[in-house]
């Protein structure tokens, strides 16, 4: 089945209030072209699940987010994400803050259709008071150990970005880390995968070993070719992070005027092509 589609068609399937998982990690291999499409949409009231970076910052700054489920939000080379910080410090979003490993466990539980997975992480910390719905579970075996029952995090949709994919949704990461993109896809009802380049299935292994084929087509509903689509996050080996642009983005958090200028220049554009042109010509 040919699953090629467009960012606009993918985002048109999303609804207000949905829980949307976003792959990548910090300011690394984020599906930014799809995030930009959400910014152009009328969507609101979203619950985001993310190892957060500028995906979270941008969507918070644009007022799209009601609730955030996360372990951290960082731009890596800029440790604190300023737009996310502003959203938190004004109380604009509900913050379900977890340990990084708990977030993985929640996605994995959803992927495996389990109600929860047990973990020691979170015990004795304010993760339990911040998330009052979290419950403990006692081992039914002789040890009787009490653990956190990390509940499944079910996603209405997952958005991930990979280096290569074929038209059917077999996808390849060529950088050093697959992150948790496969789990995001497995935990979601609808799965949209953007990539730098769509290639023939037979050509996938020309780019990397079989170990790089982390996502198979049963985990994907839509494939979108978005060259430079992770910009300004890194997407090695295709490109590194655009640090100059990231600094400009971070600086725009300083005041509403700076954000308005940034928004006019890079956000309020008709489409991804216009964005890429604005980036090229700056």
């Amino acid at each position: 089945m040919d699953k090629r589609t467009t960012a606009a068609a993918a985002v048109a399937e999303l609804r207000d209030g949905m829980t949307v998982g976003i792959g990548g990690w910090g300011s690394r291999r984020k599906p930014m072209a799809l995030v930009r499409e959400i910014l152009r949409s009328e969507l609101s009231d979203l619950t985001l699940v993310s190892y957060g970076g500028p995906d979270v910052g941008l969507l918070c700054a644009a007022g799209k987010v009601r609730k955030l489920i996360y372990g951290f939000v960082s731009l890596d080379s800029i440790p604190l994400e300023p737009h996310f910080r502003a959203a938190r410090q004004t109380g604009a979003i509900e913050a379900a803050e977890l340990d990084e490993g708990m977030l993985q466990w929640g996605l994995y539980a959803a992927a495996l259709r389990l109600p929860f997975l047990p973990t020691r992480a979170g015990l004795g910390t304010d993760v339990l008071s911040i998330n009052p719905d979290l419950r403990l579970v006692r081992s039914p075996y002789a040890d009787g150990e009490e653990l956190v029952a990390m509940p499944a995090i079910h996603l209405d949709a997952a958005l991930v970005h990979m280096n290569r994919a074929d038209a059917r949704g077999n996808a390849q990461f060529l950088g050093p880390d697959p992150y948790f993109d496969d789990l995001f896809c497995m935990a979601a009802k609808r799965r949209f995968l953007s990539c730098e380049k769509i290639v023939e299935t037979a050509d996938l292994l020309k780019g990397g070993s079989v170990h790089t084929l982390k996502i198979n087509r049963s985990l994907v509903d839509g494939v979108i070719e978005t060259p430079n689509g992770a910009h300004f996050t890194e997407c090695p080996p295709d490109y590194g992070r655009d640090e100059a642009f990231q600094r400009e983005y971070a600086a725009a958090a300083k005041d509403p005027e700076a954000w308005a200028t940034f928004r006019e220049r890079y956000v309020d554009l008709p489409n991804e092509e216009a964005y890429q042109e604005a980036v090229r010509s700056r």
Binding site: P79, D99, T119, A121, G124, T125
Partner: peptide, 11 residues
């Protein structure tokens, strides 16, 4: 002041 978040500290 929002700082790093929980990151991996609990685990």
């Amino acid at each position: 002041a929002q700082l790093l978040g929980m990151r991996g500290a609990p685990g």
